[in-house]
């Protein structure tokens, strides 16, 4: 069972600010989903390796050559706030 405190903690980790109603709703919905996920515990996976990638691809590399970059203005132009060529953010602490 996931508690409202768990939901609070997870929301903090995920940087989400939830209203009381949302907390209620998410607690309820997450419990439903996690309950369904319990079925997985029935499966014997003792000697089964995990599959993070379905394809057996390995060693994909790029040569160490400087490429053409985009105009930095293009990236700065879509910033919510900038100062000269910096991205501007509220104070950290």
């Amino acid at each position: 069972m996931i508690s409202k405190q768990d939901v609070d903690h997870v929301a903090l980790l995920a940087r989400l600010e939830l209203t009381e109603e949302e907390k209620e709703l998410y607690t309820q919905q997450l419990n439903k989903i996690l309950n369904a996920a319990k079925a997985l515990q029935e499966v014997d996976t003792d000697n089964i390796p995990p599959t993070a990638h379905v394809l057996p691809i390995q060693n994909v590399f790029r040569e160490d050559r400087v490429g053409k970059s985009i105009d930095p203005e293009k990236a700065l132009a879509i910033a919510p706030e900038r100062e000269e060529s910096f991205f501007k953010v509220p104070k950290i602490v």
Partner: peptide, 26 residues
């Protein structure tokens, strides 16, 4: 996002995320 954060978080990783990766193999 909440569900995914939870299933990766300390104490639940093995039971949820890792378990799911193994079931994926099956």
């Amino acid at each position: 996002i909440m569900l995914g954060t939870y299933s990766l978080s300390a104490g639940y990783y093995d039971a949820y995320y890792l378990k799911a990766l193994k079931v994926r193999t099956l």
